[in-house]
Design a protein around this nucleic acid. Sequence first.
DNA 1: GGACCGGTAGAAAACGCTTACGGAAACACT
DNA 2: AGTGTTTCCGTAAGCGTTTTCTACCGGTCC
Lengths: 362, 362
Amino acid sequence: MSQRKAPSDAGRATIRDVAERAGVSVASVSRVLSGNYPVSDDLRRRVMKVVRDLDYVTNAHARSLAGGGTPTVAILINNITGAAFAHVAKGVEGAATLRGWLSLVGTTGDDPERELALVNLMRQQGVAAVVLLGGAYDYDEYQLRMARFARSLDAAGSHLVLVGRPPLEGAVPATTVDYDNESGAYAMASHLLSAGHRDILVLPGHAELTTAQGRLRGARRAFEAYGVPFEPGMVRHGQYDYEHGYEAVESALREKLHFTAVLAGTDVVAAGAMQALRSAGLRVPEDVSIVGYDDIPLASQLAPQLTTVHVPYEEMGRVALRAVADRREGGAGRRKGADGEHLVLGTHVVVRQSVRPPRRHG
Amino acid sequence: MSQRKAPSDAGRATIRDVAERAGVSVASVSRVLSGNYPVSDDLRRRVMKVVRDLDYVTNAHARSLAGGGTPTVAILINNITGAAFAHVAKGVEGAATLRGWLSLVGTTGDDPERELALVNLMRQQGVAAVVLLGGAYDYDEYQLRMARFARSLDAAGSHLVLVGRPPLEGAVPATTVDYDNESGAYAMASHLLSAGHRDILVLPGHAELTTAQGRLRGARRAFEAYGVPFEPGMVRHGQYDYEHGYEAVESALREKLHFTAVLAGTDVVAAGAMQALRSAGLRVPEDVSIVGYDDIPLASQLAPQLTTVHVPYEEMGRVALRAVADRREGGAGRRKGADGEHLVLGTHVVVRQSVRPPRRHG
DNA sequence: GGACCGGTAGAAAACGCTTACGGAAACACT
DNA sequence: AGTGTTTCCGTAAGCGTTTTCTACCGGTCC
């Protein structure tokens, strides 16, 4: 009754079971297993045999309570299903397992409440870092809350990493891994403009999403550089999805808006736009040119293949993990401070087949 | 020096810090937080105030060591990037968070060794279940190892769930969530055959993948049902990716193989095939019909939209999680046994635009 | 007015592991 | 042989929670 649990009890074997059965102390078993302390060959053999016999694995919870334990990164993502995010996640996860780290994921479903709850959950887990993926919403209150999170995590020895969104303002202890969103859009728009397009339908995305804002800014700058007036009537905001692309183009067509090219905020939006054009009997790129953004696999699988701007998503994931790993090794040196590191990766235009000069007549 | 850690020390606050500061015992704090024991309003208020002040969250490791703790599912996946798998993962994750469970993910990169290592890692984490996604390889040794895993997990109070692959043979304590792979292929092939196609290029996938085997079997059965001889020369094996689809069709064309339709093992393969056809100046579906399998979003985004068989991936994920959750609630009733539950979900053909009767001449 | 309660709160024993710390061999050096 | 070093290994003190098991404190009830 009050007796020690028998080793053959249900549930997993403990380190003590192994120790007893091998006739050694638990400390020795621990040392054999973690291998960070000299043990005799004989001891090792004896212990390992029992470990195999019992099919023993150490309890990760107990281990990390006691000080050991494998670091864990938490990846928070809106929707696993989005190709771009999936690539970042892959990058993080790959780099994590490379270092023997574990990765937890949670999806927020675009719900700020869930995001909040998840960050706390991750804090409980004692994760080494939480990586937040995707564009942020530009509400002040949201930003404030993020800053609080960053500080909470930092205080608990963890760290917040923002990927694919602009850094938080002020002295916030969070690392940001970003890409040059605006420049990419600038280059993409320039590509269209230099091909001779002047009437361009712009589908930057949701107006309050930082990503969309950046892409729109880049496009506008390009228009200015080319001395082409930027018509507010030519931009349609909406979700980053296929349906939005389809509907935006469809309605533009219905309104008899004149355009020779569409600058989509995303490859998926471009795909929708392309489909709408085709449904209307318009050919791409003969009648209308299209460009996207992201360079997900879909871009090269469409027909015609999509000219787009390449964003190094997977690389961003790797970089994000590297950043937290480094900071963790770096140890006491520069720990805990309001150092908002900001890493920016480059983008570049990938020219494929979806752009041609506009037809003479128009 | 040997004094208790000061509450304002670096690192997270502990339950003791909260207790001291609130002038109560740690037990009380625990009770207030977990809310499974009556506490006076006064106590609750006092504790909660300190919790907020300190921004305290409980240590999940300690909690699960002591018996409490939130259950965790591990999702093991070949490649996050695959759309089909991503949907299953989404289903699992969604259902998990709905119940307050956590989800860990690991990617195996198609490497059996990594898969092994990951299962063990998850075992250490004491996960409630590990969900293995995707088709399996049909090696005997692999099957044996899986069976061992299943038993190990079961012994440790965890559980193995196989999703999208056939169940393990024998009395293995693993749950399988599968879809009717063969029937889907049968229906898809029938669709082509009843449209009048007789010369069909078949791209089932990698020969040793259970998924591919099932799809091939289904196709063959349909051929038999229609009294059409099944030409081994018309099937090309390969990876489930765009490149394979492209190359398979390209080489078939180069070899002057005659076919009026292609039965692709996957939507992505179909996309590649479609592109190859187009490059060769062939139109889809006027010259050649194409069908896919999976019904991922891509299928409806291609032009022409792809006729394919719908597989309820996200649903499968949800079902998988429900299965383990139920079994866990079910508790002592039917715990631990060699009950290889097998759940099969249905599929159906989604007719879109990529199939037409073959041209008269051929 | 003492015995018995329902309702709360505290003390202390787990949970399974890591890691100082100390001790006992085994070895080397005078 | 006596002492100083090494090299291993066991003892035990945590790690931060949860959860019995007691203990206390008004009330209630005869």
